[in-house]
């Protein structure tokens, strides 16, 4: 990529980032431009990805090979098995099964033939359920249950801090699991021992929510840091101070907009007063 395009890219990236962040001050046309551009560019980009990465290599090219294969068949004696063998081996005919199923989904947009889309959806549902259900039961259900009922002591290991913490962790996980399950157990009245265990379960849940929220904050900050890091890069002389100039221009816009709006509202008040 040439230096000029890099600089232009830097200005566009810095501009769009600042436009999007400008919403934190208040809604404005620059934010709207960036928002709509993001949606439009995103859709366009996904379309080309699907076109060049799915449709072209998975549908167009196999069909092209098939058509070329059919064109070179010399014999047209359709009653001879050789002809049908040549037709069958001309290319991959199975490509039409997923292609037709995929195309059937588009019939959703035409009310009279929309029933055809059910074939595509049925295949997606059946295929998805068949693939996901067995592995989910194994991965997220059975293995996770096994993880919570590990032996409290490792047989044959000497007493050490490591084995002590292993026992402590295993006990804590099992104890926490039981308490949280009791909290969600609605078939017994929450009183006495059940109530106490349930309350302990709430603390375990709170600890998880706290950890999850803390990590969420950290994740969001690191994303924000990433954008700021880029803005800092685009604020260099190499990019002709793109970040500073765009931020300053936006600040000028907000100041002017503030005074113009104030003037307009004063004029409106004067008109209504007179």
């Amino acid at each position: 990529m040439s230096e000029t395009w890099l600089i232009i890219g830097g200005w566009v990236a810095a501009g769009l980032t600042i436009f999007i962040f400008s919403f934190l001050y208040k809604d404005n046309p620059f934010f709207k431009i960036a928002e709509h551009l993001y949606l439009g560019a995103g859709m366009g980009w996904w379309f080309q990805v699907m076109f060049y990465n799915i449709w072209k290599p998975k549908v167009w090219e196999p069909v092209k090979i098939l058509v070329n294969g059919l064109q070179i068949i010399q014999s047209y004696h359709i009653w001879k098995p050789e002809f049908w063998k040549a037709v069958w081996t001309a290319g991959d005919w199975t490509i039409f099964i997923p292609t037709l199923l995929g195309l059937s989904l588009i019939t959703q947009f035409f009310q009279k033939i929309s029933w055809v889309s059910r074939y595509g959806f049925t295949f997606i549902m059946g295929y998805g359920a068949g693939l996901v259900i067995p592995v989910s039961v194994s991965t997220d259900f059975m293995t996770q249950i096994l993880g919570t009922i590990k032996p409290l002591f490792k047989v044959g290991t000497e007493m050490s801090w490591a084995s002590f913490f292993y026992t402590f962790n295993t006990f804590l996980i099992a104890f926490g699991l039981v308490c949280v399950l009791i909290y969600f157990f609605f078939s017994a009245e929450q009183k006495g021992l059940v109530k106490k265990a349930s309350n302990i379960g709430i603390y375990f849940l709170m600890l998880y929510f706290g950890a999850a929220f803390g990590n969420t904050v950290m994740g969001r900050f690191s994303l924000l840091y990433g954008r700021f890091d880029d803005l800092y890069k685009y604020s260099s002389v190499k990019y002709f101070y793109a970040a500073q100039i765009i931020a300053a221009a936006l600040a000028v816009y907000f100041i002017l907009n503030h005074f113009i709006s104030a003037k307009k509202s004063r004029a409106a008040q004067d008109n209504s007063g007179s």
Binding site: L131, V132, V135, S136, S138, T139, D140, T143, Q144, G147, I173, Y208, A211, A212, N215, T216, M218, G219, R220, S222
Partner: peptide, 28 residues
């Protein structure tokens, strides 16, 4: 689900901080 458990393929992960607590049980 599809690679690690099914084919006993050793797996490591790198995720965002937001997702990390959710993957703790897999590590355990």
């Amino acid at each position: 689900a599809f690679a690690g458990d099914k084919f006993k393929f050793p797996l490591g992960g790198g995720v965002t901080a937001v997702s990390q607590p959710g993957y703790g049980p897999y590590l355990q």
